[in-house]
């Protein structure tokens, strides 16, 4: 039932394109872009580009997780510090991630790090906020036990606070994973000569509408699959 609508759209698209209503140099047509997609999939280019995109997104997620969990744990344990940092967080968080593309381009050049740095900035905030809240919500008696046992602070954080806060933190990382993919594709489309995003820009600039639409469809499928997998992860708050 859910497949009926997209199939109808594709059929109508094909008809309108064959009838000359939709200009072929822009809209291509389904019969063409499925062929182009199959070809790019068979010769491995599409898969290599997918690996590049996901590699950069994974790097971003790792950086953001380490930074976000560290800062979040500190802010969650020391309430006065959290209150003091709030204004700064409110000032930095609304910076749209794409605003950092020119800066990242200057610093890292055309590389995986360039996309990863921009995406890591975007992923940092949800992880930071969720970690702060989760660590703050840890039973104070648990921390008290650590103090009584004369644990040093890093041990209290690693052995007591973070494990107790882990379910909440994982929820934040899952949200960030979705953001990482979107921002990575965006930086690739705008400037970075790597990955799926650039493949689309390149295909558009070399006037290959069939490859543009095929890659877009592939980005949709991969993005949806990643999202589905993330939602299936056994993470509950």
């Amino acid at each position: 039932m859910g497949a009926a609508f997209p199939l109808a759209v594709l059929a109508l698209w094909e008809l309108l394109s064959r009838g000359g209503v939709l200009a072929e140099d822009g809209f291509s047509r389904p019969s063409r872009f499925f062929v182009a997609g199959a070809k790019a999939l068979a010769d491995g280019t599409l898969l290599a580009q997918t690996a590049q995109t996901f590699g950069a997104a994974a790097q971003a997620l790792v950086i953001a997780t380490v930074a976000g969990v560290t800062v979040g744990a500190i802010l969650g344990l020391f309430r006065p510090l959290e209150r003091a940092a709030q204004l700064t967080i409110d000032a930095l968080r609304p910076i749209p991630s794409v605003a950092l593309i020119p800066l990242s381009l200057l610093i890292f050049g055309f590389s995986r790090e360039m996309s990863a740095a921009v995406a890591a900035f975007a992923c940092f905030w949800p992880i930071l906020i969720v970690t702060t809240a989760a660590v703050r919500g840890v039973d104070p008696r648990l921390i008290e036990v650590g103090r009584l046992l004369a644990f040093p602070l890093p041990k209290i954080v690693l052995k007591l606070a973070l494990p107790a806060a882990l379910p909440g933190i994982l929820v934040g990382i899952r949200v960030a994973a979705g953001i990482a993919i979107v921002v990575t594709v965006t930086t690739e489309i705008v400037t970075n000569p790597r990955g799926l995003g650039y493949a689309m820009t390149m295909a558009a600039e070399s006037l290959q509408p069939d490859l543009v639409w095929a890659t877009l469809l592939w980005v949709g499928v991969v993005g949806w699959a990643a999202n589905w997998a993330l939602e299936k992860l056994p993470i509950r708050r």
Partner: peptide, 16 residues
């Protein structure tokens, strides 16, 4: 299905 699609991915076809 369309919700997780990065909006910027629509840029190249939209430019065409």
């Amino acid at each position: 299905f369309l919700r997780p699609l990065p909006a910027s991915a629509l840029l190249p076809p939209a430019i065409l």
